[in-house]
Amino acid sequence: MEWRLPDLMLAKAVEDLPTGPVAYEAKWDGLRAIVSRNPVGTVEIRSRQGTLLNPGFPEIAAPARDLPPVILDGEIVIWHDGRLAFERLLRRLNRRPASVEAEVRSSPAHFVAFDLLRADGPDGDVARLPYRDRRARLEAVFAEQELQPPWTLCPMTLDRDEALSWMREWAPAGIEGVVAKRLTGVYQSGVRGWDKARVRHTSEALVGAVTGRVQAPSTLLLARQDEAGRLHFVGRTTVLSRQTAADVGRLLRLKAGGHPWRGRRFSAGWGSTETLDVQLVEPSMVVEVSVDISLDNSGRWRHPVRLERARPDLDGSDVQPFRPPAD
């Protein structure tokens, strides 16, 4: 019996954690994924976009064969040098088996489970249950199976003050923030029905072009789409390190066919007459950047933008729409 894997339920960004009858879960700096072990024994690890991740994370795929029939929602994380290292997750994507094996030896991955969507048996459609019941069933799976690493149960609390303390105390270890979920809420595939408060001030943008080689870019030209779907230039990153350039370059693709920026010229800097030599790429890769709030009158960031990391787990719907500042 094969199971159809659902679309993931998502979270929307909020400034403050909500109050009320909600559960608070730690949001780790990881790669969102579903782990499925169906009744016939097939194991699939799928990204939010549906990409099969088994080849990149064999240390999770192999022990998943020993799970009972389940569909788990969670995040893949890597702990390295005392903190969670998202950049090491990127090194597992689109790599040869020998390269993946080397990464597994140096930095093994774990799966942090925060939801149970399906289990074996006649009442196996767990996603239709309220969150409080799904969480109880998830905890029961961990207890009954005596699950150990690479499996980790995501911390959860009903105490808002405790959740806020996580954001203060666990940030150095790599916590992104806290996700709030209604206790009575069912799992809504593809819906942004949860709330997420972040620890630090970052933002997302699309990569529209690069300087240097696509496989190892020097800088990234960033973009956002307006409500009509037009692609607007919003800033350029500072020069990438060699390792970051290699990690990002593996995820970029030259744009085949028309590009909304084809024929456009970009200045090398404020007040400069020098133009950049750019390579246009498929404007679908999302990156997370550190920014300030200063914009010019065209809606671009005034000051240098620092790349935090590529986010292949996100898509264009996660990027704030382009809106020029009001006059």
Rank of each mutant, 00 (worst) to 15 (best):
L53K: 01
L17S: 03
V179T: 15
A102V: 10
G208S: 04
N54C: 03
M1V: 12
S298L: 11
G212L: 13
R253P: 03
A64M: 04
A228H: 14
S47T: 13
T157I: 12
V210E: 00
M167C: 09
N94C: 04
V319F: 09
E144F: 12
P58E: 10
N54L: 05
V179S: 02
R200K: 14
Q225T: 12
R65S: 12
G20M: 06
V289H: 01
I34P: 02
Y187W: 14
D29C: 06
Q225D: 05
I60K: 01
G257Y: 06
L72V: 01
R88N: 07
L251H: 05
P21Y: 08
L164N: 11
G249V: 11
V14E: 14
I60T: 01
D195E: 13
L164G: 11
R262H: 15
Q225A: 15
E288W: 04
P155Y: 07
Q145S: 14
D247R: 07
S203I: 13
P260V: 10
T275S: 13
D195R: 09
P69C: 03
G269H: 04
S294V: 07
I76Q: 02
M167L: 08
W194E: 02
A143C: 11
T237W: 03
V278Y: 10
D296A: 09
Q320A: 15
L5E: 10
M1D: 07
S317E: 06
V287R: 03
L222N: 00
V305L: 07
S47R: 03
R46L: 06
K181S: 04
D315V: 06
A13S: 15
G269T: 05
K255M: 11
H259Q: 10
N94R: 09
R192I: 11
A205F: 02
R137M: 13
L53V: 05
W28I: 08
R306P: 00
L116E: 01
S36M: 13
R311L: 06
G41S: 08
W194C: 00
F233G: 02
W194P: 01
V199F: 04
A127P: 02
T237L: 10
D277E: 12
L90E: 01
G258C: 03
S99I: 14
A180W: 00
